[in-house]
Design a binder for these strands. Structure first.
Length: 246
DNA sequence: GCGACAG
DNA sequence: ATCTTGTCGC
């Protein structure tokens, strides 16, 4: 935990479930002051996708991360944790609903991934504090966001071919990109979360995209937490046998 | 007040 | 987010 957390309203013991929207907004404004959008300082060798799955109207959440090699994008390990939340889904406050569970799955990883890609936004957010940025700031992890729908800002539709993209702007600043990750398919919204630049997030998103609309980390994470929810996968930390990598 | 609105 | 069948297109 970054030491600054103990010097402000946010403490490691803070329970998100009991926060009011006003308090959550204040926390986002404070965390924003600790954002670092400088260019990536490392050469990534692993990248993980983070996501949650849940039954409709249920407070039980199935969270998890899938760690993949980079740039090979082969699954190396995954961490799954069953948790709960009562914080409702409110556009702009997704972090308060999903982070507690994802944090447990993250802490269960014996070795942290170089980068974590979230199913949601980084700075592509009204207060520049989407779930990816929020998680990055409180854990010091390098993060980025990949959302399937636009949350904030303005943009013009990018060209129809894979690889084309346009900027998403808000109040005069670029906060992310609308990226066509597959021919003639709706774009995804990419933005840096923490400890990487806008350009880094765009480059990484494209390098992580294969034949599907969603980048591999996010796509796999979504698949795994869903299998966990329906019972095909079990809770805990799991590593793939090195033999299966060849 | 009106429209927008990640998962 | 999740519930769902067929169907259009590459």
């Amino acid at each position: 935990m970054p030491d600054f957390l103990n010097r402000m309203v946010i403490t490691p013991e803070l329970n998100y479930d009991q926060l009011t929207i006003a308090e959550a907004t204040l926390i986002q404004q404070q965390l924003r002051g600790h954002l670092n959008l400088e260019p990536l300082q490392i050469e990534a060798k692993t990248i993980a996708g983070a996501d949650i799955s849940l039954d409709l109207y249920s407070e039980t959440v199935y969270a998890g991360l899938v760690v993949m090699s980079y740039p090979d994008l082969q699954p190396i390990a995954y961490s799954l944790v069953k948790s709960s939340t009562i914080f409702p889904y409110i556009p702009g406050y997704l972090a308060f609903r999903e982070i507690p569970a994802i944090l447990k799955a993250y802490e269960q990883l014996p070795v942290k991934p170089d980068i974590v890609m979230f199913d949601g936004n980084g700075i592509l957010h009204a207060r520049r504090m989407g779930i990816a940025s929020h998680f990055g700031v409180i854990t010091d992890a390098i993060t980025m966001g990949c959302a399937k729908k636009k949350l904030a800002g303005q943009y013009v539709d990018p060209g129809p071919s894979k690889g084309e993209y346009t900027q998403v702007t808000d109040k005069g600043e670029v906060i992310g990109y609308a990226v066509r990750t597959k021919d003639n398919v709706k774009p995804v919204f990419i933005s840096p979360g923490h400890q990487m630049s806008l350009e880094d997030s765009l480059t990484l998103a494209l390098k992580c995209t294969g034949k599907h609309r969603l980048p591999e980390p996010t796509r796999r994470a979504h698949e795994y937490v869903n299998r966990f929810r329906i019972g095909t996968l079990t809770e805990g930390y799991h590593e793939f046998d090195s033999r299966t990598l060849f």
